[in-house]
Amino acid sequence: MFYTLGSLALIAWATEVLATPVAHPMNTPSPSLAKRASCTFSGPDGAVSARKSQVDCATITLSGITVPSGTTLDLSDLADDTTVIFEGTTSWEYAEWEGPLLRIKGNGITVKGADGARLNPDGSRWWDGKGSNGGVTKPKFFAAHGLTNSTIENLYIENTPVQAVSISGCDGLTVTDVTIDNSAGDNAGGHNTDGFDIGSSSNVVITGAKVYNQDDCVAVNSGTSITFSGGTCSGGHGLSIGSVGGRSNNAVDTVTFKDSTVSNSVNGIRVKARSGETGEIKGVTYSGITLKSISKYGILIEQNYDGGDLHGEPTSGIPIADLTLENISGSGAVNSNGYNIVIVCGDGACSDWTWSDVIVTGGKDYGSCQNVPSGVSCST
């Protein structure tokens, strides 16, 4: 057969094309997904190993670990969407230091306790009746700082040296069915064992919490869009705003406490603005709150907080506006030596309050209320 130069060239080209493999797109896992795994840590080396390996784990299970003295169980470098599971009893060795004993930070983080799990720092070793006001230096427990779009659920925390859970710099945090049981401190020197302290955070929802302690069940010091509902508070200082003032952030806006019970406590409902400071408290609602066995103040709203309740002169630098109390059930709830309702405001600094179905009795009327807004009374 006769081939021209042109036809030979065409045949060569076709042969080359047919001999060349066809490239197909490859489905390669992303590096982050490929290297992340389910990791379990346990024993005395578990805390250190978890800290070193946290970036590589999609799920971290902490099974009966013991945290060395003077160190933090530090999970503040978690990759997005990591799940942290506590199993068994997590314990901490003793040291006199400020803590925290536990730190968790990240985006899309899920923190949960397995059935029967306990986080127990054995706070009785530090308790001396002085809390954070003196005595031995006591570590704070859980710094839930910088959590975004995250959840904490089904944790059982017991016997913290001082404050239990600090929520700060969080946006989009849901806390469900967390128990903080410091009831052993009632007769053993527990002090300043706050349940939840909240500051500089937004869109925080706490549901179904049970707090047994010797200080505020919840204290919102600053932040916006915060809800506490379905809670049980016993033994402490009740549901609190503040104290507000003298901090880097002194604004509280849109906070709701609802459908909760406060019993065997010093206070039921408390809003504290510091004397001589500036800031704002607005849009706070207490709804469906049941009070039982309150020893000192059923409802306390003060703009003269100065290191203690009602210690200073009332000032107007932190106005309390748009405060709603509704369906507050406290018939016979206050000890006969306590006060049912106390309101001390600066001149013109409390306004637009709405109270309905507020029943708090059993104690005395407070004779030194000041600048009480219209439609509200200190008398019962």
Results as ranks from 00 to 15, higher is better:
Lys35Phe: 06
Ala37Cys: 12
Glu326Pro: 00
Gly332Lys: 10
Lys258Leu: 04
Gly276Thr: 05
Ala219Pro: 13
Thr90Ile: 09
Glu16Asp: 15
Ser329Ala: 09
Ser377Tyr: 02
Ser168His: 08
Val205Asp: 15
Asp177Met: 03
Ser351Asp: 13
Ala19Trp: 01
Cys345Pro: 15
Ser293Gln: 08
Asn107Phe: 06
Cys217Trp: 05
Ser69Gly: 09
Asn337Phe: 09
Gly375Leu: 04
Val178Met: 09
Asn264Lys: 10
Val178Asp: 03
Lys35Met: 10
Gly242Gln: 01
Val334Ile: 01
Thr261Ser: 07
Ile318Gln: 00
Lys105Pro: 06
Gly172Pro: 15
Leu147Cys: 09
Ala34Trp: 05
Gly223Phe: 15
Asn159Ala: 14
Cys233Pro: 11
Glu93Phe: 07
Ile157Asn: 00
Ile269Asn: 00
Thr174Lys: 01
Asn221Leu: 14
Ser168Thr: 03
Pro29Gly: 04
Ser132Pro: 06
Asp357Cys: 09
His237Arg: 07
Pro100Gln: 10
Ile320Cys: 08
Glu87Phe: 01
Asp215Tyr: 10
Ser240Ile: 03
Thr89Phe: 07
Asn187Leu: 00
Tyr297Ile: 05
Ala188Phe: 03
His145Gly: 05
Leu147Gln: 07
Asn159Tyr: 02
Ser243Phe: 01
Arg247Ser: 12
Leu155Ser: 11
Ser124His: 12
Thr110Lys: 05
Asn182Gly: 13
Ala219Leu: 07
His237Thr: 06
Val84Ala: 01
Ala19Lys: 02
Thr285Cys: 10
Asp45Arg: 15
Trp13Gln: 13
Ala79Lys: 02
Asn187Gly: 04
Asp322Ser: 14
Val162Arg: 06
Gly189Phe: 11
Ser202Gly: 15
Cys57Met: 03
Leu102His: 02
Thr174His: 01
Ile167Pro: 12
Leu62Gly: 04
Ser243Leu: 02
Ile294Asn: 02
Asp81Met: 00
His311Thr: 10
Ser69Ala: 15
Ile226Lys: 04
Ile301Pro: 01
Thr40Leu: 12
